[in-house]
Nucleic acid binder design. Structure first.
Length: 900
RNA sequence: GGGGGAUUAGCUCAGCUGGUUCAGAGCAUCUGCCUUACAAGCAGAGGGUCACUGGUUCGAACCCAGUAUCCCCCACCA
């Protein structure tokens, strides 16, 4: 035989992927005779490269899609990429900077042409990488969230929601990313724990109502300076803040009206330290008496609560921060300095001016940008928002009532909490890479919203009554829309469901079936897709959401470039084969659980490929001889029973989205039952032919196993499918029918009997191990049993697997023999010269003792009257059976001991 | 601060409605084997107070309460 002893995947994988494409197996089109099965890919960033998270996610999708295809469904997996506005724009800006070009020096058009250049160069690399993984996407359907058709969808939806009153423009406190210089949504903000400092600043009191007040601020920690402070404290109001650089934007100091320490300050003014501006002391219940000093500086431009306080008390807003996080001219002091530099400097200056009472360490949180990692500044700004409440309600209902099922279901809680507290979505971004907002401003300052500039002009004319308005009089909004404002339409827009809502594709493929994604974008994306689906199709976008975990390293750390603990997926594929990597990832990845990646997993996957390869090699090498009788009926019947049970089990696992368990089922069936047991049972002696009937069954079994494995290991199964037999031009395992479980007659008996026979074999092998006899030394077996039929039926198997040369029955074992007990039967292996009687006796006594203890406990249980009264009849019956078995075993063991 | 989840073998995890699937799986470990498909392998073995403390029950890994530890999500006390 010329086949190599190890499987080498590289050439095989390239070959089959190409042939699948040539055959068009992944192409899907509406077919009324078949049920659709649709998955839309979570579109990766267009300029991204494949990482381990993608590998896991896309492997799962491919397993689902390939199985559905084999089940005869019209399987449609739509691939594509996301323009990822803020991330991509940041990349392009950085790249241009390297070339000495500043974004600010470019026009919008110039910048976009650079961006598209970048996109054309790197865009879609990730899709090519997915092919190496084996992803069976319909590549003809590849979409890009910023391509014309999808942009059209975005604009239509924007206009529609605006007309429905669900989109509005307004001044609100938003999350400002000074790095990306754009507003971002609440969901894009990550809270981070930090060790910050609390600065206690002295605001000079200008008009205290009573002169000789006895109020004191908080005790100072520094006793040595206490006397000095007590004087000062009578003239100053101490305010605690973590952001001293914002004092230039202060418009008041607030205290609680019920705080006796500050009651006398009614009507007072205080002076902002260093700056000197006078601001009022205001009273509001909002202020906590027991936090800080009980006095709060009010800075409406740079804090949401302060903003609300400001509105309530009719205070002005002074915004001292520029878009890039530097202090602007309104700050008067520290203009042009970054806010963090200014903070250091002002602390120093305050200290020198004697206006800084103390600095305390303070555990706090800062809000950071998910994309740029920059510290977020709350900023009052004019943005576009989408009202969420109205859409959230039905989107919550469909998850609550399981129209959309989350796997695992624990995510339902998370989903509910978010949907019940959803806030309006800030959808405008001060970027260029994205869909420009279709709002057009008129010379009079009003605006219209329309799909095209021409429509806008018509509207503007109608609105103003000014027929002389020209296109050039309109100015389109500079901002673009949040990336998620295109992604949320993905399951509809990829089938052109907005432009052409009644087309054949959308009618057939929508709603999709399963969505596979990470829980980190449950709100960003999944929830919003559900909203869009219900709003625009009156139907959920998918029925199941499979939430993967995060891929971590073996120590449980997140994979990151800094740590260098993330393997290159393509290297892994080259080294272990795509099949090995796919199975490796799935071995240990229950839904919702993080995957602790270890190279051992992909090794195990590769080893499994190799095991399968060698099983094939063995079968392929057999020569059939039609003249030989069929001697393997027991083995054949047994394996069929195993196989059918495994199919049922796999289907059940798939039904419940337990992918790892489904894989483990077929893994054990192949490795343990097929290779370790079945093939060993039927294997002919070396260079001897096999009977035709056995070969026929074995080949058929192997084919079925290849089908069951194919979703997990598409490449090797296709290779072996074609190696195993001559195939017709369209006969590929990729499109072979998924095996349907049948229920073989007497399956339970078949399995139970073989278990008993294999237990005898295991007993023999244990003796071989204990006595250090090789695996092939022929031994005799003597049985003392009431069930001689079993041994007669399975005679061939016991002889073959146990290397037993003769089997006989007797009432007592030969003197010099080793024995073992199974159930009520005793088995002896005569072994002259290998017997240590004392050791044998000790071993049997130990076993006897255990059996007696077991019997006693069962007896006790059965003797308990309450148990007898309350337990279900079948439970009682089982207990009685346990007792009988134990007693039989005890009797056999006692016999064995006597015989020694 | 609010909410959710977890804790079972060295590791990663199953264990559905309380009782033979009840203490499991894979990997790892140990022992012996290069036995003509496979050493990327074969045969066998060991390993757990089911986090802790109580309770309910004839019976608890499973139900209840409390404790501890860990993880996740949400959150505007300066």
């Amino acid at each position: 035989m010329s086949l190599a002893t190890t499987y080498s995947p590289t050439d095989v994988e390239a070959k089959w992927y190409q042939r699948w494409q040539e055959q068009g197996f992944f192409k899907a089109k509406p077919n009324p005779k078949k049920k659709p099965y649709t998955v839309v890919i979570p579109p990766p960033n267009v300029t991204g490269v494949l990482h381990m998270g993608h590998m896991l996610n896309n492997t799962i999708q491919d397993v689902l899609v390939r199985r559905a295809r084999m089940q005869g469904k019209e399987a449609c997996w739509v691939p594509g990429t996301d323009h990822a506005s803020i991330a991509t724009e940041a990349k392009v800006v950085a790249l241009l900077k390297e070339q000495g070009i500043n974004k600010t020096d470019l026009t919008r058009e110039q910048f976009l042409s650079h961006a598209f250049e970048w996109k054309d160069k790197y865009g879609g690399i990730i899709l090519e990488q997915l092919k190496q993984l084996g992803a069976s996407c319909d590549w003809d359907r590849t979409r890009f969230t910023m391509e014309p058709d999808l942009t059209d969808a975005v604009l239509r939806v924007f206009v529609d929601l605006y007309n429905k009153g669900l989109i509005y423009r307004g001044v609100r406190m938003v999350n400002w990313d000074p790095e990306g210089r754009t507003a971002i949504s609440d969901e894009e903000v990550i809270a981070k724990d930090v060790q910050a400092k609390m600065y206690y600043l002295r605001y000079e009191i200008i008009e205290p109502r009573t002169q000789n007040s006895e109020f004191r601020s908080l005790e100072t920690e520094n006793a040595g300076q206490a006397s000095e402070f007590s004087v000062l404290n009578s003239k100053f109001l101490t305010v605690a803040t973590s952001r001293p650089e914002t004092i230039m934007a202060d418009v008041a100091v607030a205290v609680n009206p019920n705080d006796p320490r500050y009651a006398h300050l009614a009507g007072a003014q205080v002076r902002i330290p260093l700056l000197g501006r006078e601001i009022p002391v205001i009273f509001d219940e909002y202020v906590s008496v027991d936090f800080g000093t009980g006095a709060l500086k009010v800075t409406p431009a740079h804090d949401l609560n302060d903003y609300e306080l400001g509105v309530k008390h009719n205070l002005p807003v002074i915004d001292i921060l520029a878009d890039n996080g530097m202090l602007n001219e309104k700050a008067i002091l520290y203009v042009g300095q970054d806010r963090f530099a200014a903070r250091k400097q002002i602390a120093k200056d305050l200290q020198e001016a004697g206006l800084l009472e103390k600095i305390e360490e303070y555990a706090s949180i800062v809000q950071t940008s998910e994309r740029t990692k920059a510290v977020i500044e709350p900023k009052l700004s004019l943005q576009w928002f989408m009202k969420m409440e109205q859409m959230a309600k039905p989107a919550l209902d469909v998850v609550e009532n399981d129209t959309v099922r989350l796997h695992p279901p624990k995510f339902k809680n998370m989903y509910r909490a978010w949907m019940e507290n959803v806030r309006d979505w800030c959808i405008s971004r001060q970027l260029w890479w994205g869909q420009q907002i279709p709002a057009y401003y008129l010379p009079d300052g009003t605006f219209v919203v329309a799909l095209t500039a021409e429509d806008a002009l018509q509207q503007a004319i109608a609105q103003t009554g000014n027929a002389d308005l020209q296109l050039s009089d309109l100015r389109q909004d500079e901002d673009v829309l949040d990336t998620w404002f295109s992604s949320w339409l993905w399951p509809i827009s990829v089938f052109d469901g907005f432009k052409d809502p009644d087309n054949a594709d959308i009618n057939y493929f929508y709603p999709t079936n399963d969505l596979v994604t990470g829980p980190d974008i449950l709100f960003f994306w999944v929830a919003r897709m559900i909203m869009a689906g219900l709003e625009y199709r009156q139907e959920v976008p998918f029925k199941n959401v499979y939430l993967t975990g995060i891929v971590r390293d073996a120590q449980g750390r997140k994979m990151s470039k800094q740590l260098g603990n993330s393997p290159d997926p393509l290297d892994l594929i080259a080294q272990y084969g795509a099949d090995g990597v796919r199975t490796g990832m799935l071995f240990s990845a229950p839904a919702g659980n993080d995957l602790l990646y270890d190279v051992k997993l992909v090794e195990q996957g590769r080893n499994f490929s190799n095991k399968l390869w060698n099983a094939f090699r063995l079968v392929k090498g057999w020569e059939a001889d039609a003249a030989l009788p069929f001697v393997n009926e027991k083995a054949v019947t047994w394996f069929n029973a195993k196989l059918q049970a495994a199919i049922v089990e796999m289907d059940d696992h798939f039904e419940k989205f337990r992918m790892s368990d489904a894989l483990m089922t077929i893994y054990k069936l192949v490795w343990d039952d097929f290779c370790a047991q079945y093939l060993e049972m039927v294997k002919p002696t070396y260079q001897h032919p096999i009977d035709a009937e056995t070969l026929r069954h074995t080949t058929a079994y192997l084919e079925t196993l290849l089908k069951l494995l194919h979703p997990f290991m598409p490449f090797i199964t296709e290779e072996l499918w074609h190696e195993l037999a001559e195939r017709g031009p369209r006969d590929y395992v990729t499109v072979a029918p998924w095996p349907r479980a049948t229920a073989p007659a007497n399956s339970a008996e078949t399995l139970a009997s073989m278990d008993k026979a294999l237990a005898i074999v295991a007993g023999i092998r244990t003796v071989r191990n204990q006595k250090n006899l090789g695996p092939n030394k022929p031994l005799a077996l003597v049985a003392k049993t009431d069930d001689s039929q079993l041994l007669t039926d399975y005679d061939g198997i016991v002889r073959k697997l146990g290397s037993i040369s003769e089997v006989s029955f007797a009432d007592a074992g030969p003197a010099a023999s080793v024995s073992f007990v199974l159930g009520g039967s005793e088995f002896f292996i005569p072994l002259e010269g290998h017997i240590d009687l004392d050791a044998e006796r000790a071993r049997l006594e130990k076993e006897l003792e255990y059996a007696q203890g077991f019997r006693d406990s069962v007896q006790k249980k059965l003797g308990n009257e309450k148990f007898a009264q309350n337990a279900k009849p079948e439970v009682l019956e089982k207990e009685r059976q346990k007792l009988a078995d134990a007693e039989a075993k005890i009797a056999a063991l006692e016999q064995a001991l006597k015989g020694l």
